[in-house]
């Protein structure tokens, strides 16, 4: 959400997304930087109820004159993460120090996380270290700037970003943090968006960034477990419980062997399904 648009901020908590990114960077022109910073800070401080999603603020890059003022204004117990554009290991270290200082100064209870954006070729080469950097609990791929850095055209098919996509998905999976796929920029092409989501999910991405709220339902439909998968996972869960009572760690369900990896896959599906309230439970 552009940080300088009051109407958009007001409705930012209604779109059933896992996190909202309030942007102080590219969506805000240079002449609006101070207005956006003030508006986002005021909006967050006026927020009375705990919103149903995580709150992320994208600050300006550490190679600009704005980032310190951005942090000073927006870092509080109200936010969950700072999103760092054009992330590199050296910037992440610098950001960690700045955040620690602000948290100490403001007496905050919360330890603000960091979501780096991989949008430089140099960042791609540092991914293994970026995912290990302090405070990092997820990484976003920014393919528009990345393809510009590479001087290649962005395509809907996305062959030009296959390598960073795979590298990022593996690195995040290795450190059990969120891997967030690059936004799909054609807001009028929901079919293309669904295909792109499915491709990213198959590569191992856990989520995808939306550049318009209307993209959220399509993204959610791909990244949350399907009703069929949930039903299968529930059956595995039940069969596991029954067989465990008999002392069986491996058993057969529908003619297929269920062992530890299968049980683990079912467990992960159910964790996600319960998180998104997708399991029908009778309410009296």
């Amino acid at each position: 959400m552009p940080g300088n648009n009051p109407a958009m901020l007001q409705n930012s908590d209604v779109f059933d997304c896992d996190a909202v990114i309030y942007d102080l960077e590219d969506a805000v022109s240079v002449t609006e930087k101070d207005a956006a910073r003030t508006l986002v800070a005021q909006f967050l401080s006026a927020m009375k109820k705990q919103p149903p999603m995580e709150i992320v603020v994208r600050i300006n890059g550490l190679d600009t004159e704005y980032w310190e003022k951005d942090l000073e204004a927006v870092v509080s117990d109200k936010i969950d993460s700072i999103m760092l554009p054009k992330a590199q290991v050296r910037y992440l270290k610098q950001l960690d120090e700045a955040l620690s200082e602000i948290e100490r100064k403001k007496g905050m209870k919360k330890h603000v996380a960091v979501l780096p954006i991989i949008e430089l070729a140099a960042s791609v080469m540092e991914i293994d270290d970026i995912v290990k950097a302090p405070r990092v609990n997820g990484v976003l791929l920014g393919a528009e700037d990345l393809s510009s850095d590479l001087e290649v055209a962005r395509t809907k098919k996305g062959n030009e970003i296959l390598y960073p996509r795979m590298k990022l998905a593996y690195a995040c999976a290795a450190y059990k943090i969120d891997s967030i796929d690059t936004p799909f920029t054609d807001t009028n092409d929901n079919e293309g968006l669904a295909d792109d989501c499915a491709f990213a999910a198959n590569l191992g991405f856990t989520s995808k960034a939306a550049i318009h709220p209307n993209q959220v339902p399509v993204i959610n439909s791909v990244f949350v477990p399907t009703a069929k998968n949930i039903e299968w996972a529930l059956r595995v869960e039940e069969a596991t419980r029954i067989n465990a009572e008999k002392g069986l760690g491996v058993f057969s369900l529908d003619g297929k062997m269920v062992d530890k990896p299968v049980m683990e896959r079912a467990r992960k599906i159910l964790v996600k399904a319960r998180k998104y309230n997708l399991i029908q439970e009778d309410k009296q």
Partner: peptide, 11 residues
């Protein structure tokens, strides 16, 4: 409508 709030209501 293309308004995301209106579309959410409609959905």
């Amino acid at each position: 409508t293309k308004d995301p709030v209106g579309l959410k209501i409609a959905r």
